[in-house]
């Protein structure tokens, strides 16, 4: 079978050109009397007119119908110039910023512990599982992902081409398989937390106060403060972008053509770099930057006083519910004790 040919804009343009060139034949058939040689297409004109050359093929591989796609040049310049610079600058800038903040401001200290040693459950087991699944996957994906363009620049000179190829091979498999863990975790987090991340008035105040990062104050916040909500939505948006583009890349050409595949890579890489930047900030606050925050995701429970300090609105709500327990409301954990 002469393979199915997409109705090409090429044909349309050429048909118009051809018709214009053929002297008005009086026969019913516009073809008769043609001089096919004189009407021959010219590569340069075609490329200028269409930007990409496609035709008919008879082999099963439909991609082969694309004869020339100079867009590969833009892909190359993105992949080899834009992306490494973009990624390098953003990641280094974020790291530098965080380092500066740490050096200037130091760690945000935890408030004094609740005298009664009371804790509240901040994250359920499922939420923590979702978080750590995503987090671990993300680290693997970030490293193996960055390897696609930084590896040969940074790692290969150190370990040699063969070892690097072996590593990259496994890194590729890791990237392709761990991606599913990331997407699963992302899904869990979205389901678990989307409700508590809907912006409201409290967030405006929190943002006005700059989160209190500069003056050391603690503006009121719900379960998640505006900063965390921003983080959440950043992760969701970038994460989804990465996931969708990633899945399309896992099934190459299933839905996209060559230019679509290139675009998927642009989206994937750009979103990934931005997400890495966001996550770096997140990791900083969750570990080095703020005392007590890590515990929330480690054990799930936080000191009551910590909760009151950082998430005052939420803490009061939790306490109020504790006093008047209601039938389990999903998303709001029951008290620890």
């Amino acid at each position: 079978m002469r393979c199915v040919c997409r109705l090409l804009p090429a044909l349309a343009v050429l048909a118009m050109l051809a018709v214009a060139l053929v002297p008005a034949a009086r026969a019913a058939d516009p073809m008769t009397g043609a001089n096919p040689t004189a009407q021959s297409v010219n590569e340069r004109d075609l490329l200028n007119a269409l930007g990409k050359l496609q035709g008919r093929i008879t082999i099963p591989d439909g991609k082969a119908a694309t004869l020339e796609q100079p867009q590969g040049r833009e892909y190359r310049s993105f992949h080899e110039r834009v992306l490494p610079w973009l990624a390098g600058i953003i990641i280094l800038a974020v790291l530098a910023g965080l380092a500066a903040f740490y050096l200037i401001k130091g760690r945000i200290p935890a408030p004094p512990r609740d005298p009664g040693g009371r804790t509240v459950l901040r994250f359920s087991a499922v939420e923590r599982l979702g978080h750590w699944l995503t987090a671990t996957a993300f680290v693997v994906l970030a490293i193996t992902g960055l390897n696609y363009f930084f590896g040969k620049r940074l790692l290969m000179p150190l370990i040699g081409a063969d070892a690097f190829a072996t590593w990259s091979h496994w890194a590729k498999y890791a990237h392709n398989f761990v991606a599913w863990a990331f997407m699963l975790g992302l899904l869990v987090m979205i389901v678990a937390w989307v409700r508590d991340n809907i912006p409201d008035r409290v967030d405006i105040a929190w943002l006005r106060a700059g989160g209190g990062f500069l003056d050391g104050s603690h503006p009121p916040a719900e379960r998640f403060n505006a900063g965390q909500k921003l983080m959440f939505w950043g992760i969701v948006i970038f994460g989804l972008a990465i996931s969708v583009s990633g899945v399309l890349m896992l099934f190459p050409f299933a839905l996209l053509d060559i230019n679509g595949m290139q675009f998927a890579q642009y989206v994937h890489a750009t979103a990934a770099v931005l997400l890495i930047a966001v996550i770096l900030g997140h990791i900083y606050i969750g570990t080095l930057g703020m005392e007590g925050a890590f515990q929330a995701m480690e054990s799930g429970s936080v000191d009551l006083n910590w909760a009151r300090t950082h998430h005052s609105v939420w803490a009061e709500k939790v306490l109020a519910e504790e006093r008047a327990p209601r039938a389990g409301r999903p998303g709001t954990p029951a008290p620890a004790e």
């Binding site: 058939d29 073809m31 008769t32 009397g33 043609a34 001089n35 096919p36 040689t37 004189a38």
Partner: peptide, 15 residues
């Protein structure tokens, strides 16, 4: 029929 040969012709006559 406008054949692969016709594509290289200087005159194509369809009858």
């Amino acid at each position: 029929r406008f054949t692969r040969t016709a594509a290289h012709a200087t005159d194509y006559v369809r009858f």
